Each structure stands twice: as structure tokens, then as C-alpha cells.
Amino acid sequence: MGSFVCVECGTRRNPCRCRVFGPTLGCVAFLVTAVVCWPVGAVIWICSHAKGRRIMGKPAAVVYPKVSNCLPI
């Protein structure tokens, strides 16, 4: 299994203007949450399309930004 690193440059939140740890942890949290949310959202989507879409979108809309923004580096 290969390793991956997410880099976000051009930010003004730290002196080096690049972030590595926040986006990388955000990506890992996104993947872990997606493994749970997407199957659950797919099952709920059968009965309620709007609620199923909200659940399946939660990793990208909520989890990744919160985890990525908690670390300024």
C-alpha cells in the first residue's frame, strides 16, 4: 500500500505558506468516514433521496474541512 501526502500551498495561516499535516489527516478522516457513510447513505437513499444524499456528502462537506482546518501546518 502506497503512502500519500496532501499539500495545500498558498495559505496565509503559517509562515511557510504550505500545509501538509492538516490536509493529510483530513484526507484520512474523509476516507474512514466515507467507508461508513456511503453504504449507510445508499440504503437510506432508497427511502429518502434528500437524506441519503446528505449522509453520503457528509465526509466531504463536514469531516474533511473540520479536520483539515484544525491543524495550521
Rank of each mutant, 00 (worst) to 15 (best):
24 T>A: 00
27 C>D: 06
63 V>F: 07
70 C>P: 03
63 V>N: 03
52 G>Q: 05
48 S>D: 13
35 V>E: 09
36 V>R: 11
68 S>D: 07
47 C>I: 15
48 S>P: 06
64 Y>S: 02
29 A>L: 05
42 A>E: 11
72 P>A: 13
66 K>Y: 15
29 A>I: 05
19 R>T: 00
41 G>N: 05
50 A>K: 10
39 P>K: 05
59 P>S: 07
37 C>M: 13
9 C>A: 11
50 A>F: 13
62 V>F: 11
25 L>P: 00
29 A>W: 02
29 A>V: 04
60 A>C: 10
62 V>A: 07
73 I>P: 13
63 V>T: 07
7 V>F: 05
19 R>W: 01
66 K>V: 13
66 K>E: 15
45 W>V: 08
73 I>Y: 14
68 S>E: 04
2 G>R: 14
17 R>P: 03
65 P>W: 07
72 P>E: 14
9 C>G: 08
70 C>H: 14
18 C>N: 00
20 V>E: 00
23 P>D: 02
5 V>M: 02
29 A>R: 01
50 A>H: 12
63 V>C: 05
42 A>Q: 11
53 R>Q: 15
57 G>W: 13
18 C>D: 00
53 R>K: 12
36 V>Q: 09
29 A>G: 04
56 M>K: 08
18 C>I: 02
65 P>Y: 06
42 A>F: 12
2 G>Q: 15
25 L>N: 02
17 R>K: 10
41 G>F: 06
5 V>Y: 00
38 W>A: 10
46 I>Y: 13
49 H>C: 11
43 V>R: 11
48 S>E: 14
62 V>C: 15
62 V>H: 07
49 H>N: 13
52 G>V: 04
44 I>T: 07
29 A>K: 02
8 E>W: 03
14 N>W: 02
30 F>I: 02
25 L>Q: 03
12 R>A: 14
30 F>E: 03
18 C>P: 00
60 A>L: 12
57 G>S: 10
64 Y>P: 00
49 H>E: 12
56 M>N: 07
10 G>Y: 05
54 R>N: 15
